[in-house]
Design a protein around this nucleic acid. Structure first.
Length: 178
DNA sequence: AACCGGTACAACCGCTTGTTA
DNA sequence: CTAACAAGCGGTTGTACCGGT
C-alpha cells in the first residue's frame, strides 16, 4: 500500500501560490538547496505538499528558467524532437536549456499542435493528415502529370515517404548535440 | 457594460520509475 | 528478491485573461 505524498493532506494549501509562499520556498532552497521534497514543506514552514513545492520550484521559481516567448529555433527543435520522441516532454525539455517539461507540454498543446494541424500535418505522428492523403489519391487518379497547384500536396506526401530516413538522420544530428 | 467562447498556463492527480534497506 | 518510499512524468483540470459580439 502506497503512502500519500504528504501527511495531513486535508490541511495542505492548494491552488495558486501566494507571494509569501514563493518567498519561503525560494529562501529555503537558496539556503539548503533542492532535494528531499517530502520534508521540505515542514522545514520551510509551508503548508504545501512536497510534490506541489517541487513543481512550483521546477516550473516557475527556479532562476535558471528562461521564460518568455519561444523562438523559431526552439519551435523547430520541439517539433523535430516530438517527431522522434513523442510525448516525452521531459526528454524534449532536456534539449531546450531553460525550458521545463510543463512549459514545453503547454506550448505544444496550445501553439505547436495547432500550427501543425494548420499545415495539414497530423501532430500525433507528424504525417500528412487524412484529408491530404485523400487529396493526393484524387490527384493521382485524375492526373498523370503534376499541376502547379497540386505540386505542394504531392511534395508533402512524398516527403512523408522518406520519414524513416529523416528520423535516422535527425537522431544522428541529436547525438551530436552537447 | 455584460456575456461568452477561446486561449494560455499554473497546478493537481495518478501512475511509473529508480533507489534503498 | 522485494517491499517501501521519494522523485519524476505525462495527462488533465482550473482559472485568469482577452477579444468578439
Amino acid at each position: 500500500m502506497r503512502k500519500p505524498c504528504c501527511d495531513n493532506k486535508e490541511e495542505m494549501h492548494k491552488g495558486a501560490w501566494s507571494k509569501q509562499e514563493d518567498k519561503k520556498l525560494i529562501d529555503y532552497i537558496t539556503k539548503h538547496g533542492e532535494g528531499c521534497w517530502r520534508n521540505l514543506p515542514k522545514a520551510a514552514g509551508l503548508l504545501r505538499c512536497g510534490k506541489s513545492c517541487r513543481l512550483r520550484w521546477m516550473n516557475y521559481l527556479n532562476p535558471n528558467l528562461k521564460r518568455g516567448n519561444f523562438t523559431e529555433d526552439e519551435d523547430d527543435l520541439i517539433i523535430k524532437l516530438h517527431a522522434l520522441l513523442g510525448n516525452r516532454w521531459s526528454l524534449i525539455a532536456g534539449r531546450l536549456p531553460g525550458r521545463t517539461d510543463n512549459e514545453v507540454k503547454n506550448y505544444w498543446n496550445s501553439h505547436l499542435r495547432r500550427k501543425l494541424i494548420k499545415l495539414g500535418i497530423d501532430p500525433k505522428n507528424h504525417r500528412l493528415s487524412h484529408y491530404l492523403h485523400i487529396k493526393r489519391l484524387e490527384f493521382l487518379q485524375e492526373n498523370n502529370t503534376r499541376s502547379e497547384n497540386d505540386g505542394l500536396i504531392f511534395d508533402a506526401a512524398s516527403s512523408c515517404a522518406n520519414k524513416d530516413q529523416q528520423i535516422t538522420s535527425s537522431l544522428l544530428d541529436l547525438n551530436s548535440l552537447p
